[in-house]
């Protein structure tokens, strides 16, 4: 019984959330336009959470992703001010993400600082650099090339509903590409299986001859680049950049991975489960807004739902251990 709750309780809960909104918002919730909206709204979170899954597979964390997202957006915007072309600015911002991620990896893996402490420190460092680079200002308006802001507004048209074009948002497509890539890395390569081995038992993995140090170091590159990409997506969506705008992504991304872990058989992070977690958070924001629930009450509800989901999963697992 507990096994069933543990295995399917999370999934049933997520379906219940969707069903709840479908009943309460019969005309708008289950429409293609609304779901395309949700997919676009969660796209940045999806990218951060998917790459966060890579380090959480090993039992590690990266707390610096939010400030890295802010930093990457600001770096691109400052380069735009210098009239650097869009592709070069994007590559530079992603390069900053790669360097920052590798730096985290070095601190955690080579130097051996706890990920929580190391990435908490780099969170502050990246945030400070973002303020230095931008001078604390929001960069917007004519400084941001129109094509950069238009990217987040556009996408291939897939139909017409009520005489309004239905587009598959570019941001959604980017998120899908990232999730597929991470899925391939984690589920289809020996690299991914080795990361799971480290998460299972780091010492055993080392004794089995895995290059644990290099694997951990390299995995942090994913969160760095993912955070930078999400920061660029955010900057494109708001056609501007300021040194704090991505900060909120970190906690929500970790919450999404935890929510996802309640869905997997062994309680391990899996990228598709993370995606489900991201979607639940997005659906809650979307549905509760449409139901005109007060924004502060909405935050309380979202936090409570995370606790319930993760709590049920933990209870289920404990029941299973006791039986065994």
């Amino acid at each position: 019984m507990t096994g069933i709750i543990r295995r399917f309780g999370g999934l049933a809960g997520m379906l219940a959330v969707v069903l709840f909104f479908a009943i309460n918002l019969p005309e708008t919730f289950l429409t293609a336009r609304n779901w395309l909206n949700i997919s676009q709204q969660v796209s940045m979170l999806a990218v951060v959470a998917a790459t966060m899954t890579v380090v959480m597979v090993m039992g590690d964390f990266d707390l610096s992703v939010g400030s890295m997202a802010s930093l990457a957006g600001v770096v691109a915007a400052v380069l735009f001010v210098q009239e650097v072309s869009i592709p070069v600015a994007i590559l530079a911002a992603l390069g900053v993400g790669l360097l920052g991620g590798l730096f985290n990896g070095v601190m955690v893996s080579l130097v051996g600082i706890l990920p929580f402490v190391a990435t908490l420190a780099t969170l502050t460092v990246f945030s400070g650099i973002a303020f230095v680079v931008s001078d604390g200002r929001t960069i917007f308006g004519r400084d941001i090339p129109a094509a950069f802001g238009d990217f987040a507004r556009g996408g291939p048209q897939i139909g017409m509903v009520d005489e309004r074009a239905l587009i598959l948002p570019n941001l959604t497509l980017v998120a899908v590409v990232v999730i597929v890539l991470i899925w391939i890395v984690l589920e289809q390569t020996s690299y991914g299986r080795r990361l799971y081995a480290i998460g299972g038992n780091s010492e055993a993995a080392r004794l089995a001859g895995l290059p644990v140090m290099w694997l951990r170091l390299s995995a942090f590159a994913f969160t760095g680049v993912g955070a930078a990409l999400a920061g660029l997506m955010y900057a494109s969506r708001v056609a501007s950049a300021n040194p704090t705008q991505g900060d909120g992504l970190m906690l929500t991304a970790i919450a999404a991975v935890f929510l996802g872990m309640t869905l997997t058989r062994d309680g391990q992070p899996r990228v598709l489960a993370t995606l489900a977690g991201v979607l639940v958070l997005g659906v809650l924001d979307n549905g509760l807004t449409q139901m005109r629930v007060d924004s502060y009450v909405r935050e309380v509800l979202v936090g409570a739902i995370i606790l319930i989901a993760v709590g049920l999963s933990a209870l289920g697992r404990r029941g299973l251990t006791r039986r065994a």
Partner: peptide, 12 residues
């Protein structure tokens, strides 16, 4: 803010 505008537009 953009996301919530999209939501309330959907809500009508």
């Amino acid at each position: 803010v953009i996301s919530r505008i999209e939501d309330v537009v959907t809500q009508g």
